[in-house]
Design a protein around this nucleic acid. Structure first.
Lengths: 235, 235
DNA sequence: TGAAGCTCCTATGTATACATAGAATGCTCG
DNA sequence: CGAGCATTCTATGTATACATAGGAGCTTCA
């Protein structure tokens, strides 16, 4: 086996040397992007051949995906990408609410105001961003990631941050199903602003309650969108 | 390799056939029981020889333990049982509070009163149980497990129940460090009674707040006990 | 024609051999 | 005598060969 140097020679991002890591990232990415649809079966031999690694690292990758909750399988008979039913989405949001409310509370208590003041400015520009089509949409999602990261940094609790990361992983998939209408995203940006203001003010209760409101709105929107187009974009 | 029939022929509990499952359960049990102490290095060859499986299933077992947060390791250079610092304990309780409060709230909303009425009677007998030494102590812990299971059943949310299970895994280890003085356990039983009463009454706020109080007391006790005997039993 | 049993096949579970990287140690040179 | 480098060793990462279980399909008998 030779070294293959044709693996996305993107400067800066040193490609992961371990084959199991490559397999994990590729499969995870494909599941989150919807390339591997829910319910799709993952055959070890087939996937290992496709990705270009042997079965051993592929199994390690699948083990991590199972831990992430992205893949499930009966012991003896294969694995499949987990489904995302309406009930699953409601259940996920139930946990999400518990964790994000708590995180918002703690963040409001321990935050560095400067960080959130900077974020505030960026969220103020969100409406303009959302008028710029796909590129703006991606930048908006990046902005939300920045906000999440800022909260995580303020929380400074590996357990809580880890649990939130798990929840957010599933959220990426859900976001695809309810792919964003601009009106909802503008509202969401406004809701984020309220949360940020509460965090800046150090108002723990307000931060938690604003988060609660935001998630409730988000869930309502997601459920409506998913029920409207159960299998895919209907146009 | 022959089949070994000498593996705890306990009737009813069909021993797991898969070697990776055996390895996982044994290692997990040994970590939770404190046989494998925090910081202990896990060498694949050494452990696989000890447990009697090859390296392949052992690696699968370690992967699951990493997902559980019981084992950590730098990619290239070995694995070790995770440490439980005072900060870790505080952080864990922070997440636990978010999840258990939310769970209590939901349980109070969706509970089957009969189940919790039965639990109530058992908790009323807890003080007598705690006067019976080690046997009673184990039965008391079993009773808490029953309570947790009842809450999980009432919550009926795989994500939330899973997150709680993860937190409780770590709690088993912490419980060892603060191994229970009877006074604290009697107080804990009383606190549980308050939570149960709130759940029976369907009082969601009271259930959440009583849970908050209970966890705060529990954390205080644990921290005091751990600080009193940092490395192990002193007396 | 339908159902039951058997056979074969496929995909997972396991074991082991080989590759490789990182660290410790000893040697050598200044 | 100390520091730097090379060597060796050890433990992980990977690949592959073999064992096994579970299911699908076919055959046969009632």
């Amino acid at each position: 086996m030779w070294f293959v140097y044709t693996e996305t020679p993107t400067a800066g991002t040193t490609a992961p040397v371990r084959a199991s890591e490559r397999a994990y990232r590729q499969l995870r990415g494909e599941i989150l992007d919807g390339i591997l649809i829910p319910g799709a079966g993952l055959l070890e031999i087939e996937q290992s051949a496709r990705i270009g690694v042997s079965r051993t690292p592929l199994r390690a990758a699948i083990a991590r995906l199972i831990a992430d909750g992205l893949v499930a399988g009966r012991p003896g008979r294969g694995f499949m990408v987990t489904e995302m039913s309406l009930d699953s989405i409601r259940e996920l949001y139930e946990v999400r609410r518990a964790l994000e409310e708590h995180a918002a509370r703690i963040a409001a208590d321990r935050r560095d105001p400067a960080v959130f003041l900077a974020l505030r400015d960026q969220f103020l520009d969100a409406p303009e961003l959302l008028a710029q089509g796909t590129v703006g949409l991606h930048r908006y999602y990046d902005l939300i990631d920045e906000f999440d990261d800022a909260v995580a940094e303020a929380v400074a609790n590996p357990f809580l941050v880890g649990a939130l990361a798990t929840v957010r992983t599933h959220l990426v998939r859900i976001r695809r199903l309810a792919r964003g209408n601009p009106d909802r995203l503008r509202s969401a940006a406004a809701e984020h602003l309220l949360i940020i203001d509460a965090i800046i003010a150090g108002d723990t209760s307000l931060a938690a309650h604003a988060t609660h409101v935001h998630l409730q709105q988000s869930l309502t929107n997601v459920l409506a969108a998913v029920q409207g187009q159960p299998t895919g974009p209907v146009a």
